[in-house]
Design a protein around this nucleic acid. Structure first.
Length: 317
DNA sequence: CGCATTTGACCCGCGC
DNA sequence: GCGCGGGTCAAATGCG
């Protein structure tokens, strides 16, 4: 276990570090995985709350909140306020596309003959089914789950976060050479989605946007909850310390991902305590850490705050 | 064989 | 109304 390290928010050149759009007040202390707090102006859903992790174990991010300035993010706030109370409704409506009519064809040949027509009819039927389903889905304006985005300086796009994800889509992003990937939680009863894309401003930064709340514990968490919580990666105490705020150039990313709240983490979200295997986390962190900006002189006392906001990212818009 | 990924098609909302 | 871009679906494909 490492001793606590305290860091004052105003120490590492806050004017350039933190966007004026994201108000943060108070001091926070950096430790392995505990006693890390950042006080915003108002309380709202925390990252882990939205992920539904808070019920399953201790987390640094339980106490971490980044509150956007309301003036600047009013549109986002409005949207989020619309959906915050929306229960997570599973999207898995079982549609039995089997032809209800059936019409038992005993004769194979007759079946083949009819197949072509059936194909068209089936297509039409499918279209009808779709159209019938549409109003149910869209009669009400599609409600969006609260979103959380955070940024991670990482070589790999898809960061291990303790949950299992299934990729269901990928789209090219306008004005960006990097595609956006869409993932859905593999748990059948869980409708959480996440999007992953690389920052246009800094390709080494991965923007991960979570949408919805997990309705189940992390698969890894259930196995290695205690171990992960008790044995932080001592070699990379960045788990807590890298949670930070939106540098100016990346503010654009906030709007692009449509997140309600944004966490910025230039190391990795991997060792946030709620994660699973410590070994896995450490390895991943070690791998990703190499892409962080060297922290120069502040690494001892200030953790990796300079990692958090590399100078290259702090350029003006 | 089961599950995950890929990828083109489709749908929808929004701005003009 | 139309076009564009974001988001999702689902068949095809890959992989262990």
């Amino acid at each position: 276990m490492e001793g606590k390290r305290s860091v004052k928010m105003e120490d590492p050149n806050p004017s350039s570090l933190f966007s004026d759009r994201y108000l943060v007040s108070g001091n926070y202390s950096l430790t392995g995985l505990e006693d890390f707090t950042i006080d915003g102006e108002n309380g709202s859903l925390g990252f882990m709350e939205l992920l539904g992790v808070q019920d399953y174990g201790p987390s640094v991010l339980d106490m971490l909140q980044v509150i956007p300035n309301q003036n600047q993010t009013s549109t986002v706030d409005q949207e989020s306020s619309e959906v915050l109370n929306t229960p997570a409704t599973p999207n898995f409506s079982s549609i039995s596309s089997e032809s209800s009519g059936g019409g038992g064809q005993n004769d194979e040949q007759a079946k083949e003959v009819v197949d072509e027509e059936d194909d068209e009819e089936e297509e039409e039927q499918k279209q009808k089914i779709k159209k019938q389903l549409k109003p149910n889905k869209t009669s009400q304006k599609r409600q969006r789950e609260p979103r959380f985005a955070f940024m991670t300086k990482s070589e790999v796009d898809h960061l291990e976060d303790g949950y299992r994800w299934r990729k269901y889509g990928q789209k090219a992003v306008k004005n960006s050479p990097f595609p956006r990937s869409y993932y859905r939680c593999t748990n059948a009863s869980c409708s959480v989605k996440k999007r992953i894309e690389r920052s246009l401003n800094d390709p080494t930064i991965v923007m991960t946007t979570y949408e919805g709340q997990h309705t189940h514990p992390s698969p890894l968490m259930s196995r290695a909850n205690t171990a992960a919580a008790l044995i932080p990666c001592s070699g990379f105490s960045t788990g807590a310390s890298t949670a930070t705020f939106m540098p100016s150039p990346l503010q654009m990313s906030l709007s692009s991902v449509g997140a309600d709240q944004v966490y910025c983490n230039y190391s990795t979200p991997l060792n946030f305590g709620f994660m699973g295997s410590t070994n896995i986390n450490c390895a991943a962190i070690a791998n990703q850490k190499r892409f962080c900006t060297p922290p120069s002189a502040l690494i001892t006392d200030y953790g990796l705050l300079q990692d958090i906001v590399p100078s290259t990212v702090r350029k003006e818009e």
